[in-house]
Simulated assay, not measured.
Amino acid sequence: MSYFILSQDHRFVNAVKPLGVSEVVKPELLSTDHAQELAATNLHFTVAEAGQIDYVDYIEQPAPFVSDRLKRIVEKFAPDTLFVPGAFTDLTRRHQEVYWLIVPLRIDCLSVKSDFAPDGSLQRLVVDRAHTGGKMLLQVGGVRERILLMHLALAEALLRRDYNGIRLIRADS
């Protein structure tokens, strides 16, 4: 049971950048405990103007969003994941894309072998697989950072398809 850290592939320099997300989606809301509050939130954002915009399948910052097509496969593997619909609108081009704020279950699965910096930030993530509950997608609990972990089975399913903007890094265990 290997796990991978899900992150955005920053080689896509023209990746869509939604504006104003930080003002609407506060970090403390990104847990399933706030599902009703998130569901009632209007997630409609304009995107930063650029010569070219790539609508990547995963946006990591300022909040984790997945494309509609990526959501369809993730929800098959991780049905307990909360998805909140949103829209990204390019006013210049009169184009709109549906994205989903993704909020996986937060699980304390850090191994005692994980390393922390003196300021409390995570330096080295080591996953205790016995505490993941076999979840296909989860947020790492007990850390300041927002880290999404993906099970090997889901990672392989993504890699067999033509998704873009996704980077998977094997987590130590």
Score class of each variant (00 low, 15 high):
Glu23Pro: 00
Phe83Ser: 09
Val66Ala: 01
Ser173Asn: 11
Val127Thr: 11
Ile107Arg: 13
Leu122Val: 07
Asn164Gly: 10
Ala63Leu: 05
Ile166His: 05
Asp80Phe: 02
His151Ile: 00
Val98Trp: 00
Leu19Ser: 07
Glu60Gln: 15
Asp162His: 13
Ala40Trp: 00
Thr132Arg: 05
Arg106Asp: 01
Tyr55Lys: 02
Val47His: 03
Asp9Tyr: 06
Arg124Tyr: 05
Ser67Gln: 07
Val24Gly: 04
Tyr55Cys: 01
Ile59Tyr: 04
Arg160Tyr: 01
Ala48Phe: 02
Arg94Lys: 14
Ser31Gly: 13
Val47Tyr: 02
His10Cys: 00
Pro62His: 06
Phe77Gly: 02
Gln123Leu: 15
Trp100Phe: 13
Ala171His: 10
Glu145Asp: 12
Tyr58Arg: 03
Tyr58Leu: 08
Leu122Met: 07
Tyr58Asn: 08
Arg93Ile: 01
Gln123Asn: 14
Ile107Met: 09
Asp172Tyr: 07
Asp90Tyr: 06
Asn164Val: 13
Asp54Lys: 07
Lys76Cys: 02
Lys135Pro: 00
Arg167Phe: 10
Tyr55Val: 04
Pro64Leu: 03
Val84Trp: 02
Ala39Gly: 01
Ala50Gln: 13
Pro118Glu: 11
Phe45Cys: 01
Ile107Leu: 14
Ser31Lys: 11
Gln8Tyr: 04
Thr46Glu: 13
Leu159Ala: 10
Lys26Leu: 14
Met1Glu: 11
Leu158His: 00
Leu152Gln: 15
Arg94Met: 12
Leu101Ile: 07
Thr32Asn: 11
Trp100Asn: 08
Val103Asn: 05
Leu149Tyr: 06
His151Leu: 01
Gln52Val: 14
Gln96Met: 13
Met1Arg: 10
Ser114Trp: 03
His151Thr: 01
Ser114Met: 05
Asp119Gln: 06
His131Ile: 00
Ile169Val: 15
Gly165Phe: 07
